[in-house]
């Protein structure tokens, strides 16, 4: 299997949302994109799926298996979207047509885009529903989305992606709308199925810990830029970008109580805003003059890459 490389600055005409994002997903690997609102994390995965808002324009390249997504013919694009990549959205209720039965939703893609027979698609649909842990799949096929809980519906969504075993799974905050216990179960499911089938995954979330638990590599985004790229296993001990560290420190702890949280001052910036220098400089405790004037370069460090002028300075005692 070949690599997927993409480089996607988006210019929507109103402003640039993504600024020179580089992302590589190896076949079968899982990468996490983590950021706050406005960081451009969702737009990044949407660009991969060629699902952009009307009027958006891109420069740079998104390629899949060596093919440029932007150059794909409509037939090729349909094949790409219907059989090679799959997407799981945050709100399954918004993504699944509420007036059609679950079974209908499941077989639709297989029948219209992949040319399966209805009977075969239905049979396979029952298999995948069982596989995502839905009891009594035959009955569920005849249920309407409104009759299922959010967690069950998200399982249906996951099941739909398994029907055609895509090579790449795009998951955009798939568990944000779910309860914690349901989130845990759904993430375990996604993680298991992905590993069993050797699917690659791009997992978008605002939750660093969640991403670290199911991904190989973490990409931290801020204001439309990837500011740090680091193996998930190194995240807690060896992340170096001030923003990554600040995010890790800002969450209250489950196993103890500190009197004050280390909050990040100011507001998160969106990629739309014009900045000179480093986008994080205004909130960064380590910012020096150059941070406010020059856009930081991407610096290769031992753990991966970071976008910081002070990449080689020892900002923390232990790193």
């Amino acid at each position: 299997m070949e690599d997927l490389t993409l480089d996607v600055p988006v210019d929507s005409g109103h402003g640039r949302i993504l600024h020179g994002v580089d992302l590589t997903v190896e076949a079968g690997s899982a990468i996490g994109i983590v950021g706050e609102s406005g960081s451009g994390k969702s737009m990044t995965v949407r660009t991969v799926a060629a699902l952009l808002p009307p009027g958006a324009s891109t420069s740079g390249r998104v390629s899949f298996d060596g093919d440029q997504v932007a150059d794909m013919s409509s037939d090729r694009l349909r094949r790409y979207r219907s059989s090679q990549v799959a997407m799981i959205f945050q709100d399954p209720r918004a993504a699944i047509n509420p007036v059609r039965k679950v079974g209908n939703f499941l077989v639709e893609n297989a029948v219209t885009n992949l040319g399966w027979s209805r009977a075969r698609a239905r049979e396979k649909a029952i298999d995948v529903l069982r596989e995502v842990g839905i009891a009594d799949p035959e009955r569920r096929l005849n249920a309407f989305p409104s009759e299922l809980s959010g967690g069950l519906l998200q399982r249906v969504m996951i099941a739909s992606t398994l029907l055609y075993e895509p090579e790449l799974l795009l998951a955009d905050e798939p568990t944000t709308a779910l309860d914690v216990t349901t989130q845990s179960a759904v993430m375990a499911l996604i993680d298991r199925l992905r590993r069993e089938r050797g699917m690659a995954m791009v997992f978008v979330t605002h939750d660093l810990e969640l991403a670290a638990a199911v991904c190989d590599t973490i990409h931290v985004m801020y204001a439309g830029r990837i500011v740090e790229k680091i193996p998930a296993s190194e995240l807690h001990e060896r992340s170096r970008h001030p923003y990554t560290r600040a995010l890790l420190d800002a969450r209250p702890r489950l196993d103890g109580r500190e009197s004050r949280l280390r909050a990040i001052p100011g507001q998160p910036l969106s990629g739309l805003e014009d900045v000179t220098g480093c986008a994080f400089a205004a909130r960064c405790p380590f910012a020096v003059d150059i941070c406010r004037t020059d856009e930081p370069p991407v610096v290769a460090v031992e753990t991966g890459e970071i976008r910081c002028h002070r990449a080689h300075d020892r900002l923390w005692g232990d790193s």
Binding site: S12, H14, I17, S37, G38, S39, G40, K41, S42, M43, R46, P53, Q90, E173, T176, H206, S270, L272
Partner: peptide
């Protein structure tokens, strides 16, 4: 989330 926000900005 972010897309909706971007869309709402627009």
């Amino acid at each position: 989330m972010s897309v909706a926000q971007v869309a709402s900005v627009v």
